[in-house]
Design a protein around this nucleic acid. Sequence first.
DNA 1: CACGAATTGATATGTTATAACATTGCTCAT
DNA 2: ATGAGCAATGTTATAACATATCAATTCGTG
Lengths: 172, 172
Amino acid sequence: MVRGRRDAAPVLWHRKHDHRRCFEDALARAVSLCRRCGARLTAIRRRVLEVVWQGHRPLGAYEILETLRAERAGVAPPTVYRALDFLLGHGLVHRIESLNAFVGCSDPGSSHGGQFLICRTCGTAAELNDRRIALAIEGCSSESGFHVHHATIEVSGLCPNCQQSDAKVANA
Amino acid sequence: MVRGRRDAAPVLWHRKHDHRRCFEDALARAVSLCRRCGARLTAIRRRVLEVVWQGHRPLGAYEILETLRAERAGVAPPTVYRALDFLLGHGLVHRIESLNAFVGCSDPGSSHGGQFLICRTCGTAAELNDRRIALAIEGCSSESGFHVHHATIEVSGLCPNCQQSDAKVANA
DNA sequence: CACGAATTGATATGTTATAACATTGCTCAT
DNA sequence: ATGAGCAATGTTATAACATATCAATTCGTG
Ligand SMILES: [Zn+2]
Ligand SMILES: [Zn+2]
Ligand SMILES: [Zn+2]
Ligand SMILES: [Zn+2]
């Protein structure tokens, strides 16, 4: 197993987050990764990736579609889904099954389970990739004689910010 | 936390499985559970539960609908979805997010995360409810200051039976 | 029986995703 | 240059999943 650099859980909500930088880094990583493996990050694919990375809230395919349509006429669902398939295939975005939505991958090129903490108030999704969770799942599965291919882990709850907001409302 | 009786992972695929018994037990548990809490397990709701429990393969709402229509004319999607909402609300079935499908709960009335091993060849879904996985997730989440509400855990892979089949094909 | 509440029927529509085939634009051997 | 071959995109239609709305019926209770 690859040594994970992210086990310390650098979670999005803790520090003041420079999303401008976050966004540009993600795009740069994508460009570099595609160049290395000879994949063609075309204009449409790149634009879909940018839209997905506008924030850390998973976006539905039709939300992405609306954004593209505002910029350019005649964009249809297959255009968006094809771009998303490409990005999924190269590990640049993840699909959030419980929301039928898509979010940028915060660490493309690495191991890649895809474990998410999703705030049910503000909608923000933070990617974990914690070894302990992966090991627990691998352990239980192999005890059952099951061979793991992919694990979907999507935790719904309240992020630190929204817990504070809730407390304020309760005290009012 | 409630003391789990199922941590020993009594997984479906290991033993010869008497599904007739499995099915009847599940229905009996549902009837008893509904009686205790005053919920009305009506004919439609009961029938949907039976259909879902025909096997351990998650069924889509429209698959269930087809079965009902074969027995009785004029059944429409809302009928099925309403029954499923009732069953979900009382913990008698689970929704599998990654398949947009529904499967009977193997241990209604207990703690209830809902952790599934889903074979991508035969489609069978086995429910785990393992404390170690729940603890790993709770641990990582709280380290990030995240308050867990619900965890979706759906592991895709190969069940013991289908691993054997694969091996046979490979050797042929 | 009459009442209100819960359930179901019926119709329409919203949302998410893919099938199928035409067109464009680039690469490369001739 | 040229046109066959291929990947990407455009275009239209439809499949698959889910909900809104309101009318009709059923059920338990007084
Ligand atoms: Zn960011
Ligand atoms: Zn939040
Ligand atoms: Zn069974
Ligand atoms: Zn299998």
